[in-house]
Design a protein around this nucleic acid. Sequence first.
RNA 1: GCGCCCGUAGCUCAGCUGGAUAGAGCAACGGCCUUCUAAGCCGUGGGUCAUAGGUUCGAGUCCUAUCGGGCGCGCCA
Length: 579
Amino acid sequence: MNIKHLLTEKTLAAFQQLGLTDNVNAAVTQSTRPEFGDYQINGAMAAAKLLKTNPRQLAQQLLELLDIADMAESVEIAGPGFINVKLDKNWLASQLTTAATDSRLGVAVNPTPQTVVVDYSAPNLAKEMHVGHLRSTIIGDAVVRTLEFWGDTVIRQNHMGDWGTQFGMLIAHLEDKIAAGVDLETVALADLEDFYREAKKRFDDESGFADKSRDYVVKLQSGDAHCQKLWQMFIDTSIKHSNDVYQKLNVTLTNADIKPESAYNAMLQPIVAELVAKDIAVESQGALVVFLQELADKEGTPSPFIIQKTGGGFLYSTTDLAACQYRSHELAADRIIIFTDARQALHFNQVELVARKAGYLAERTAYDHCPFGTMMGEDGKPFKTRTGGTVKLAELLEEAVVRANAVLQDKVTDLSATEMAEIARKVGIGAVKYADLSKNRTSDYIFSWDAMLSFEGATAPYLQYAYTRVRSILRKAEVAADFHAEIVIGAEQEKLLAVKLLRFEETLQQVMKEAQPNLLCNYLYELASLYMTFYEACPILKEGVEPATRDSRLMLSIFSAKLLHKGLDLLGIEVMERM
RNA sequence: GCGCCCGUAGCUCAGCUGGAUAGAGCAACGGCCUUCUAAGCCGUGGGUCAUAGGUUCGAGUCCUAUCGGGCGCGCCA
């Protein structure tokens, strides 16, 4: 059920009857104010401009041809040519009654399933995951879940950093730890951040260590068995740390989704050779470079894109080109979505240009780099990762659960300690995720413990609480799993809730198109808020409520609970029966 | 120097391909629990949408300039 889509089709049909088929835009939107109805059709004004006619007159003609008598209670022309549509309560009720019992919650079956490759999370395995990895990980996961629910074939790609120059120093350090007989699991690699710091310190201070490190990188990348073995030990441990975080975060990534940088190793040399052979790349100051005229500055100086360093080493640019080829051709992607920090915007812009020139990206493959802002400290200045300012993701999540537990302790409940711990976990993690997912900002954002761990207002706990309130009623009413009744819409609070309930698919479409889960966050908050209002205003199980009214309201409650559950699930946020 | 992103209420942010009187939450203030769960509900106050021009029936949204913040720009990723 997609009311906006339905109204758009009806409007376009009416336009067609008026002889307008090209360049017409129905411009259907949700009404901005209650007195303008539920939806407004704004297309008449732009069309009138094209035809050089009076917009109100055109709107009138359109209105007469508009076949929406069954769904609209009233249709009115207002202002310069707006068409305001107020939906009919009976129509809404009947649509809802159908949707409420649908296994897809009223969301249509995807008519054109696509293969979508989603590149997200991508931590650097040299270090532990920190708060900077949160956005990519959970936004990507929410988009993935939404695409899968819609019916696309999603291929997750965790482009982990496992091949950089730091690994020489890390494995050299590891080698010494092993020689000293230190237990790797519980001591040496228990804290990757400490391990990295130790190795870096030796690299800077200890004579001979830096040379050994550089030597080990070369050996590693040329396939030396000893170095490979050490490297593998380190990588395995680091991946385990990531998996712990994913599990805590309720993120769907698994080892099967890992396609690290090293996996593209064999493709790099042939790609460089091909780019040179095609005259796309040229030698410049000892390196191989692609000069992009498309990104030239005002003087016409092209933008350089280095694909091979002086001395033959490859860079992440080369790896990303290989990833394009693999994803577009081998995985047959219709669309590639990459979630990274905005600082890489130029890089991905260049990657796409080069990949298109060389055919690594097929024409049919859309390439969407979805950037987000750099993280700042609470003072508004860039978050320093080197000066001890790093907040480990695992620590943030632990803190969230501790704080949620503290809030829970203040409540008088009859919940067991086990239930309380489970609720604190879901509330704490949910709060962290919602705080981040609900923001659209492509600009920089400020990391704040308090904002991240807030449990009041538009937060995950609010949505979880709304869910438990509904569930509580349904438990009390002892409704059967297959409970069914006809929905009747009377009170204004019911009408507003009904319209919102029928906007789920509309919301999901937008989330997928823009790769912006914050739209789903907004929707769910509004849904929960409208349910709360309905809950306060419309008694269900109280004395004096007519059976038919009670059953209708129970149906509204059941469907609200299902949508809240599903919506939060798509965000990767868990719900509970009680809190 | 050049380029990209951004500037909306005291704070954090919404604002769907340009639409009508710019919306939430937090904070402040005032109401609502002999309870269908008060992590809630209802209400009040709070704005030159950075600034100045321009495009048009209409601009927070598009264009230009300026100011302010962040980031990027040949061998890290």
